[in-house]
């Protein structure tokens, strides 16, 4: 292993998003506060509780998950595409770094950004939404697990995309709808039967509910099912991203 190389590239990836924190950290923080204020406090008058949980508190795990997965995936995807378009990729491919080391650095970079954003929203939830976390370690663990999964997805998309337009298409037409339809703002029990059945095929539904369970102790899906789905997704996308890098398709001629 080229440990120094791996550390260098990882710290570059982490340093990159901290250098532009106004774009990478602050927006999720502000939008989550707005979601809580606008959706939470206004809708709470109409939807008092879901599963005995006040509506404002109910949406917080969904907001954490939405921020976590969008930040994790956009970090690794945009960084990889940027490297391609700015001509920086040869610096990595010509260095004594393995495909696995390069993949790890990108995935860790996205994981850190996803986790930092997720924990910040959790902090907002604790201070503004008044939640008390039932299983703090499991909550942090779940945020990290989902960050790894979506950072891997982002790294995969970043390798596949050749333009910003392609990348935005994949994010806007795939990740965003799946997140919103995964039950951020509602319990699937509020949906008609066919929509409930469709939700079972949305992996993000399990992630939101898994996190909701660790924070609030309520969930639409069994906690173990949520954990297993999150774990399978993480392993699956991690392997897919690393193997695509190893194959060199879309990266090497």
């Amino acid at each position: 292993m080229n440990w120094v190389g791996l550390w260098t590239l990882t710290s570059r990836e982490v340093g990159r998003f901290f250098a532009v924190y106004r774009q990478t950290i602050i927006p999720g923080f502000i939008s989550s506060i707005l979601y809580i204020l606008i959706f939470g406090f206004t809708l709470e008058r109409r939807i008092s509780t879901i599963d005995g949980i006040p509506y404002t508190m109910f949406i917080i795990p969904g907001l954490i998950m939405m921020n976590t997965l969008t930040n994790a995936s956009s970090n690794s995807s945009s960084s990889m595409l940027q490297m391609k378009l700015l001509g920086q990729l040869p610096d990595l491919l010509q260095a004594p770094l393995s495909s696995f080391e390069i993949s790890m650095a990108y995935i860790v970079g996205g994981t850190v950004r996803g986790t930092v954003n997720g924990l910040l929203i959790l902090l907002v939830g604790i201070t503004l939404g008044g939640i008390s976390v039932i299983q703090p370690f499991a909550t942090v663990g779940f945020i990290i697990l989902v960050s790894v999964a979506f950072s891997s997805i982002g790294f995969l998309l970043g390798q596949l995309a050749d333009t910003w337009d392609q990348l935005a298409t994949l994010q806007n037409f795939l990740l965003t709808p799946l997140s919103f339809l995964g039950g951020i703002f509602y319990s699937i029990k509020m949906l008609p039967d066919w929509a409930q059945a469709a939700s079972f095929y949305n992996p993000i539904y399990y992630m939101i509910n898994g996190l909701r369970f660790t924070i609030l102790g309520v969930s639409d899906s069994p906690p173990m099912t949520s954990f297993i789905v999150a774990l399978i997704m993480t392993i699956g996308f991690f392997l897919a991203a690393v193997l695509l890098m190893e194959s060199g398709k879309k990266i090497k001629q």
């Binding site: 340093g15 990159r16 250098a19 001509g87 920086q88 010509q94």
Partner: peptide, 14 residues
């Protein structure tokens, strides 16, 4: 090996 490529690398951050 050290390579000085013909095309300039760009970087926005560092």
């Amino acid at each position: 090996v050290g390579i000085s490529a013909q095309e300039f690398t760009q970087d926005w951050f560092f």
